[in-house]
C-alpha cells in the first residue's frame, strides 16, 4: 500500500510528509520531521511526554495517527520559544529546577501552556488535576507545580 501524503501545519509552517497508516503523529514528528522535542515515554497514553496541541486541543501524539492530521494544526514544544527568547513557562521551569532528566519536560510545558491559555489564574488543585496525565519520575511534582504557578503570575502581568 502506498504511503499517505499528508499536508498539514506544524508550529505555523505549512508542511507535507509521507507516512504509513500505522505510524503515529509522534513517530512522524520525531522520525520524519526530526522534531524530537516530543518524547515517547510509554506509547500508550499514560505518561504525557508526547503531548502536543492538535487544533487547539491538548492530546497525546502517541495516540493520534499521522494520517489523521491532514489539514489540521499541530503545535509542538519546538514552537514554544520565540527564537532565543524562552516562554515564561520554560524560564520558570529553569529557575525552579523543575526538571532533571528532562524527558517529561516538553510534555509538561505543552500541557501547562494549554492550561494557562484557558485558565490564567489556576489554583494548585486545578494545576495538579490538569497535569495528572503527565508523569515525572525524577523531579517530583512540587517544583513543577510551583513553576507553573509562578509562570502564571508572570503571564498575567503580560
Amino acid at each position: 500500500m502506498a504511503k499517505h501524503h499528508i499536508e498539514t501545519t506544524v508550529n505555523g509552517d505549512e508542511i507535507e510528509f509521507l507516512c504509513e497508516t500505522e505510524e503515529t503523529l509522534l513517530d512522524v514528528l520525531r522520525d520524519t520531521l526530526h522534531l524530537t522535542g516530543s518524547k515517547e515515554g510509554c506509547a500508550s497514553g499514560d505518561c504525557g511526554a508526547c503531548s502536543v496541541m492538535l487544533d487547539g486541543r491538548l492530546v497525546c501524539s502517541c495516540l493520534v495517527l499521522g494520517c489523521e492530521v491532514g489539514g489540521r494544526r499541530v503545535e509542538t514544544i519546538e514552537g514554544m520559544a520565540k527564537g532565543e527568547k524562552l516562554h515564561p513557562l520554560q524560564q520558570r521551569f529553569l529557575e525552579h529546577a523543575a526538571l532533571q532528566c528532562g524527558i517529561c519536560t516538553p510534555g509538561f510545558l505543552v500541557a501547562s501552556k494549554a492550561l494557562l491559555e484557558r485558565t490564567p489564574d489556576p489554583t494548585e488543585h486545578e494545576i495538579r488535576y490538569w497535569l495528572a496525565g503527565n508523569l515525572c519520575r525524577c523531579t517530583g511534582y512540587d517544583k513543577i507545580v510551583s513553576a507553573v504557578m509562578d509562570a502564571a503570575v508572570t503571564m498575567r502581568k503580560g
Binding site: G48, L54, R57, L58, V59, A111, G133, N134
Partner: peptide, 9 residues
C-alpha cells in the same frame, strides 16, 4: 475518562 490529553480525544 483518562487525563486532560485523553479527554481531548
Amino acid at each position: 475518562i483518562g487525563s486532560t490529553q485523553v479527554q481531548g480525544r
